[in-house]
Simulated scan of single mutants.
Amino acid sequence: MTPRPFHHGNLRAVLLEQAEVMLREGGVDGLSLRELARQAGVSHGAPRSHFIDRQALLDALAEQGFDRLTDQVRSALAGAGPFPERFRLVAHAYVDFAVDNAAVMELMFATKMNDAAGPVHAAATRLFQTLDEAMGPSAAPGDGDRDRFKLLFAAMMQGTATLITTHRVTRSQGNVLIDDATGVLLGSHLATSLLQP
């Protein structure tokens, strides 16, 4: 394979793109800075000008994954129509991302986010803030029920994505499950207490 050319200034983007290919093909264990340099067709030290070590590369991939998922969720929320329909579109966008980017999604949620000031934690927070904003104003600051709702949503969607990626259900069966899950979630006592007009 001929390494793709890059222009000065976009090496980081090229490295992240190649790292994601390697992640999909060989998992986290197959990803090293030296092999990344070889695959990208650059000197073995070139990646270190952007990623101090392997963990920094993994963190950058996870951060980028959260940002891309957040963009897809925002796009789904931007559509016209009542909240339940937009919420269903968000659920489909979430699962589509999780299925189409399974290795990245696994990395995103496996990455340690103990550093509250770190970029991965900040990117994950942006995703859940986007979901929170879609729910409308909070009745009480620090409402734990809103956090439960968002985590339950994520658990249901990631579970559905896992069923699809492990071939327990087909993509079309997964789409039916998404609609069922959002209906159950929006009809729950938790949702009705949070989403009152």
Results as ranks from 00 to 15, higher is better:
residue 79 G to T: 14
residue 98 A to C: 06
residue 76 A to C: 12
residue 90 V to Q: 01
residue 54 R to G: 01
residue 49 S to I: 10
residue 63 E to S: 05
residue 51 F to M: 08
residue 91 A to G: 11
residue 86 R to Y: 07
residue 59 D to N: 11
residue 93 A to Q: 00
residue 83 F to R: 13
residue 71 D to Y: 02
residue 72 Q to W: 03
residue 52 I to A: 14
residue 84 P to H: 13
residue 73 V to G: 09
residue 69 L to H: 02
residue 46 A to Q: 06
residue 89 L to H: 13
residue 76 A to L: 08
residue 75 S to A: 15
residue 83 F to E: 06
residue 94 Y to T: 15
residue 64 Q to C: 07
residue 46 A to V: 05
residue 87 F to T: 01
residue 70 T to N: 14
residue 46 A to C: 05
residue 86 R to E: 07
residue 92 H to G: 06
residue 44 H to T: 14
residue 83 F to L: 15
residue 63 E to I: 02
residue 51 F to E: 02
residue 96 D to N: 15
residue 76 A to G: 12
residue 58 L to R: 01
residue 69 L to D: 02
residue 84 P to C: 11
residue 66 F to R: 00
residue 94 Y to V: 12
residue 68 R to A: 14
residue 93 A to P: 00
residue 51 F to P: 04
residue 91 A to S: 10
residue 56 A to I: 08
residue 47 P to A: 08
residue 84 P to D: 11
residue 74 R to F: 01
residue 77 L to Y: 08
residue 52 I to M: 10
residue 80 A to W: 09
residue 72 Q to C: 07
residue 84 P to G: 10
residue 72 Q to H: 14
residue 50 H to N: 13
residue 82 P to K: 15
residue 79 G to C: 12
residue 89 L to P: 03
residue 92 H to P: 02
residue 97 F to D: 02
residue 74 R to L: 06
residue 45 G to T: 15
residue 73 V to R: 09
residue 48 R to N: 06
residue 67 D to K: 08
residue 56 A to R: 06
residue 85 E to N: 11
residue 58 L to S: 02
residue 52 I to Y: 10
residue 83 F to G: 05
residue 95 V to A: 02
residue 67 D to A: 08
residue 47 P to I: 05
residue 68 R to K: 12
residue 62 A to W: 02
residue 79 G to I: 06
residue 52 I to L: 13
residue 74 R to E: 11
residue 92 H to L: 09
residue 99 V to I: 04
residue 50 H to L: 07
residue 71 D to T: 10
residue 83 F to C: 04
residue 99 V to W: 02
residue 54 R to P: 01
residue 92 H to V: 08
residue 95 V to T: 05
residue 92 H to I: 08
residue 43 S to C: 11
residue 91 A to W: 04
residue 84 P to N: 12
residue 59 D to A: 07
residue 72 Q to T: 11
residue 54 R to A: 03
residue 91 A to I: 03
residue 98 A to P: 00
residue 85 E to Y: 10
residue 92 H to M: 06
residue 64 Q to R: 15
residue 81 G to L: 10
residue 55 Q to H: 07
residue 62 A to Q: 00
residue 46 A to Y: 03
residue 76 A to Q: 08
residue 83 F to D: 03
residue 97 F to E: 00
residue 61 L to K: 05
residue 57 L to N: 03
residue 49 S to R: 13
residue 54 R to T: 03
residue 100 D to Q: 05
residue 59 D to S: 07
residue 72 Q to L: 11
residue 81 G to Y: 11
residue 89 L to C: 10
residue 82 P to H: 15
residue 89 L to S: 12
residue 56 A to H: 14
residue 73 V to A: 15
residue 60 A to L: 02
residue 60 A to H: 03
residue 100 D to P: 03
residue 65 G to F: 02
residue 97 F to V: 00
residue 59 D to F: 00
residue 78 A to W: 06
residue 86 R to P: 05
residue 58 L to I: 06
residue 87 F to V: 04
residue 49 S to T: 14
residue 46 A to F: 05
residue 45 G to I: 12
residue 96 D to V: 13
